[in-house]
Amino acid sequence: MFERINIENLPKGNILAFGEFYRNELNNSSLEILSPLKEVAQALNKKLILLFLIGSLEDIKNLEEIKKSLADEVWFVVNNELKDLKDDLYTEVLAQIVKSSQPYGLFFPATKIGMSLAPRVAGALKVGLCAHVNYLKVKDNQIIMSRPTYGENIIAKLVSKSSPVMATISLGAFNIKYGEREPLMKEIIFPENFSWSSKLKIRNFIPSKKKLTKLSTAKIVVSGGRGLKNKETFQKLFELAEILGAEVGATRPVCYEGWVEEERMIGVSGVTVKPKIYIGFGISGALQHTVGMENSEFIIAVNTDKDAPLVKMANLALIGDARKILELLLKKLKS
């Protein structure tokens, strides 16, 4: 079905992006990271290649999506042993591809799987790895990457001096864009004597009961922080979300408190949102949170403190008690 290419004949010096496939489903994060990487590839005059490790070609459900992607080429490694996520084997396969194709860069989405594999690959290649970056730019032929850091409003700009340049890219930080041309599809053929063995055996899989939230693509986000004081008040955000057709977001401390599941965390450690309207109740606006929502089109902050950073960055700030405002708002909207 695809052009078959021996691993030793792979084109060299390109930008590789790891495509996450789990149980035959493509993870959208792999398409997201192509958006900034396309710009990087163009600035460096390199090709962008999306790379998949899969059990069999028949398994691909999302081929149409992949054909529309920004990648110039899509490479598949196909072997029945790749059906399950075996970190050690996956690392071996990726390291072989890097050794043969000597890419300029190798990037992973910062999913749990990406964050398990990327450091193993970096360790095997003995190269640097930048963690969940949300900004990439080429300057003087070098890729500069940024990530927020520490509890304060600090952003660190990083470079990697080793080759290939490696990083994991924050989830939801970039929109999926589509390409103008269908990428070339290639199946990489590994040498006969390559060992597909692994010390891992996946015995069982229990799908999560929670359905994945639609937070990262929501048009309206209502979000809450510690200023809502307790779980009960926080839960009222779901009523508001229902009325407005919104998704509920949260800050890290309230997720850790157990007011809401961690999947709803917005920020560096959680998801990035870009809604038309973001409403934050009792949220101070620490950088770790705001990097995940600063590109919202219209920001509303509700806070008792008019010096809170989120109040300052808001298009509209209401200075008052978040619980009272939320309760009265719900009452009025329901009547």
Binding site: N153, I155, K306
Partner: peptide
């Protein structure tokens, strides 16, 4: 260490919108 921090920037936040104070009723 192949990765290196080349710069740290402190993000300055400037007020950009309307800040309203008042009774809950008005705010809502």
């Amino acid at each position: 260490s192949p990765t290196q921090v080349v710069e740290v920037i402190e993000k300055k936040i400037e007020t950009k919108g309307i800040i309203l104070e008042g009774e809950t009723e008005e705010l809502v």
